[in-house]
Design a protein around this nucleic acid. Structure first.
Ligand SMILES: [Zn+2]
Ligand SMILES: [Zn+2]
Length: 549
DNA sequence: CTGCTCGGACCTTCAAATCT
DNA sequence: GATTTGAAGGTCCGAGCAGT
């Protein structure tokens, strides 16, 4: 406790840190409906659902957040803080050590991927040592309840302004935090939008950056090496984005809507719930580090020199800072590509994916986007890229380290029936080689398969994923991405289909499969495939996505 | 010019369905 | 029991807009 203050102080105060802006309210919950018609009804088979529980509403639902923050946190906080204290002096936080450590990691990073993190610890001598502890601390906290939050009231206040009161930050600080308010998140709804940011802060900052790196780890995720130790760095393009603060919305779930919200209870970030997901990564430096001030960052850079985080690479914020996007033309893409190239993608995903990857020409192909398994709550809200480090890079940037905990995920419901699956075609037919090669591919559609529209196999060329289908494959999409694309249903069946449209809704709404429509309620499964449009993966997708000319 | 919001594309996970 | 399918449940890109 006492300790905390110290540390915190340093932290909070950093003006440089940006504040998270945050949030939108959760609209989600309400959303609605309208949009998703389909769901309204569940397929009959699905009806079963579980009674249980899930709540849907959740997620963002505030409740969840609440948990995070919990007032209780104090205790927890302690923990964390404690750790901090261990750190050397905080205020100064020794950059060099940090750096060193980082560098070390850096090297290793590649292979280790996620794992790398740990290293941090080791290596570095001293610093390393510290880290670990922290990390642990941190993690524990989570586990327990999320609690992590603890901390600094201050921070919280800043960011979230707990009190609801208003907004703003204000005051901040300090003092007391109060918890009363508590839970920032909880309120979050309110976050009003007002701007959090106030001034100064925004202005600067960003530099931090980190580096970048891009590293992806083998697993496909970004690796951690970067500056903060583990934090991975987003691709340049992304970086720019990162800056944003959060907001949020969709979330998932929500629930509501459809089914209900009511339905569910919501899930949430409850503390109790353990997060199933991954365990935390070990320690990262990040945790230790208070948000760096500009100057600090600057130092960083210097120290690192270009090398490490070179600007080149990712474009450090600064340099481009301005407008990241704009300035860089395609940058994002590029980055992506690079990333991809390095990484391996997981096969499965490939399958599902558009398929671009595989053989397509590099140019055309759109790189696959890698996601973290579990984004932290802050990033989640903001819909921004997170990383595996626990205080994730973004949170560090914004000074949200305290609240940087993994978001909770819903448990997948069991017992839901699904329609009959398509069977996979005999390999031979398809085409040949390509197909064959990929063992993984699923869905390849045989031409002849009944139900399917037959798409010419040829189209498939891309061995890759059949799933995706051909059509325009040209990737057209690629760049477009969403663009204006009208939504569509397309995409792959799965996802796209209508089902999702909004996240929030999507889910809850009921899972209706796309083909659901087909089913009319009666009992049988209609064969979805043929009928429904939706599913066919292919076809539809195309249409929709494609932007057709 | 810069940052924030947020729609929806893209991903990953994992239970059901199917195969062996 | 192993494998495949495909939707649930998530992440986060990037357009559009607002503030400075
Ligand atoms: Zn994050
Ligand atoms: Zn975070």
């Amino acid at each position: 406790m006492s300790t905390m203050p110290q540390q915190l102080s340093s932290v909070k105060q950093e003006p440089h840190v940006k504040q998270e802006p945050h949030v939108k309210q959760e609209p989600l919950t309400q959303l609605p409906s309208a949009s998703q018609p389909y769901h309204s009804q569940q397929p009959f088979y699905q009806q079963q659902q579980h009674p249980s529980t899930y709540s849907s509403s959740h997620q963002y639902g505030h409740p969840a957040y609440a948990s995070l923050q919990n007032p209780a946190s104090t205790s927890s906080s302690t923990g964390s803080l404690g750790s901090f204290s261990s750190i050397p002096s905080t205020s100064n936080y020794n950059l060099s050590r940090h750096l060193i450590a980082i560098n070390m990691q850096h090297n290793q990073a590649v292979s280790s991927g996620a794992n790398s993190i740990p290293n941090g610890g080791n290596n570095a001598g001293g610093s390393g040592a510290t880290t670990p502890s922290l990390a642990n601390a941190h993690s524990n906290a989570n586990a327990s309840t999320n609690a992590s939050v603890p901390s600094s009231p201050t921070l919280n206040n800043l960011q979230y302004h707990p009190n609801g009161t208003g907004s703003h930050f204000n005051s901040h600080v300090n003092s007391t935090t109060t918890s009363g308010a508590s839970t920032p998140y909880a309120q979050h709804s309110s976050y009003g939008q007002t701007a959090y940011q106030s001034q100064s802060q925004q202005a600067h900052s960003y530099q931090h950056q980190t580096s970048h790196t891009n590293d992806i780890n083998s697993s496909g995720y970004y690796n951690s090496s970067p500056p903060y130790g583990s934090h991975p760095q987003p691709p340049a393009s992304q970086q720019s984005q990162q800056q944003q603060p959060q907001s949020h919305h969709h979330a998932s779930n929500n629930t509501g809507s459809g089914s209900g919200t009511g339905g569910g209870p919501h899930v949430q970030f409850s503390s109790t719930a353990p997060s199933p997901m991954r365990q935390h990564q070990p320690p990262q430096y990040a945790s230790l580090v208070p948000p760096l001030s500009d100057s600090q960052y600057a130092q960083y850079h210097q120290l690192l020199g270009s090398s490490a985080f070179s600007s080149a690479q990712s474009t450090p914020y600064h340099s481009n800072h301005s407008t990241p996007y704009s300035s860089l033309p395609g940058s994002p893409t590029l980055e992506y590509q690079q990333l991809n190239s390095n990484t391996n993608v997981n096969s499965h995903s490939m399958l599902h994916n558009n398929g671009n990857n595989a053989n397509e020409s590099p140019l055309t192909q759109k790189p696959k986007r890698r996601q973290v398994k579990n984004a932290c709550v802050n990033c989640q809200k903001a819909c921004k890229k997170c990383d595996e480090g626990r205080p994730c890079t973004r949170c560090i940037k914004y000074g949200l380290t305290d609240t940087c905990v993994d978001s909770t995920r819903k448990v997948r419901k069991k017992g839901i029936k699904r329609g009959p699956y398509k069977r996979r075609p005999p390999p031979t037919q398809i085409g040949s080689a390509s197909v064959a090669t990929t063992p993984t591919m699923r869905n390849a559609v045989p031409t002849g398969v009944p139900g399917y529209m037959s798409e010419p196999v040829t189209a498939l060329n891309s061995p890759t994923q059949s799933h995706m289908l051909p059509f325009n494959s040209n990737t057209s999409t690629s760049s477009l991405g969403h663009m204006s694309a009208p939504l569509d249903f397309g995409y792959d069946a799965s996802s796209g289909s209508g089902g999702y449209a909004f996240h929030a809704h999507r889910m809850d709404s009921g899972y209706a499969p796309s083909y659901a429509t087909g089913y009319s309620g009666s009992g049988l499964y209609a064969s979805p495939y043929g009928m429904s449009s939706s599913n066919n993966n292919n076809n539809n997708s195309t249409s929709s996505n494609s932007h057709l000319p």
